[in-house]
Design a protein around this nucleic acid. Structure first.
Lengths: 138, 138
DNA sequence: CAAAATGATACAATTATAGTATCATAATGA
DNA sequence: TCATTATGATACTATAATTGTATCATTTTG
């Protein structure tokens, strides 16, 4: 049972790293060095984050990734990243073979799990990239 | 992302069904009829619940399953069942390839997820079989 | 035009989940 | 005793999600 997949985890770490550093642009290779994760996997993740609009990319020499201009680290939430890599956030799927469980409407278990899910969602939404970056003492 | 697997879900439904009905013993076949789930899968689940001490089983004609004498529906929690079928409850695995992530000790993401996990655990523990059984109006 | 970066995309490995199938064993009653 | 009816044990299979790898195309820069 995992709340967060490796995809999401790596993406979050990468976003933190990108947000933390001062240069405008950082390449996948540089990120691999500081984050110690598989290069092709990270590259794929970075491409996705770019497509989803969280990052900007630039090609060629001195190219790489930067936070998209429109977004600030305080605005990127864990749920944003989870949605991108894990789809919709549902603790409780209630599948019965291929279709929904016929009891879905009056299932007391589902009701209780739904309540938990709601609270988890609120808490996950409160976790932003900036909240994960260590505040350094100046 | 699923909090509860089908194993657990079926087991919980079966336990509710067993706890609800008045006869001492109910067979797998009878449970399949009321619960509409695959017979061999349910059988395996019932066997596991028996091994784990939540159910008692009896063989032969009029055999079947009953709640173990030592346990009451109010004492069986969702976490008990989850532990049996899903192993330890961890929202946050922090695996890095095969071993733990080297940053596990000072990972701010892990710290935050751990907090959420603690609360989820408390809430799951509050869900008992008896709390899931519909109170019927007499 | 070469070098250095990302883009796109197809493929493969591993693991967890969700089952199925089969035969052995025990209890019951005619 | 023996057929019936139940569970016990266990091995096997299918599917899907996760976690990657590999390759080639494209763009930018000097």
């Amino acid at each position: 049972m995992k709340l967060i997949t490796r995809n999401t985890d790596y993406a979050v770490r990468a976003l933190c790293c990108i947000a933390e550093q001062k240069q405008e642009v950082i390449s996948a290779d540089q990120l691999v060095k500081s984050l110690e994760m598989p290069r092709p996997f990270l590259r794929k993740i970075l491409q996705t984050l770019n497509k989803e609009g969280l990052l900007n990319s630039s090609k060629g020499k001195d190219g790489g990734f930067a936070l998209a201009v429109a977004v600030s680290p305080g605005e990127i939430t864990l749920t944003d990243v989870m949605k991108i890599f894990q789809g919709s956030i549902r603790l409780n799927e209630c599948k019965f073979k291929k279709s929904d469980c016929p009891e879905i409407e009056n299932c007391s278990l589902k009701k209780k799990i739904d309540e938990i899910e709601k609270e988890v969602f609120i808490k996950l939404k409160a976790i932003t990239i900036s909240s994960l970056i260590k505040k350094e003492v100046k």
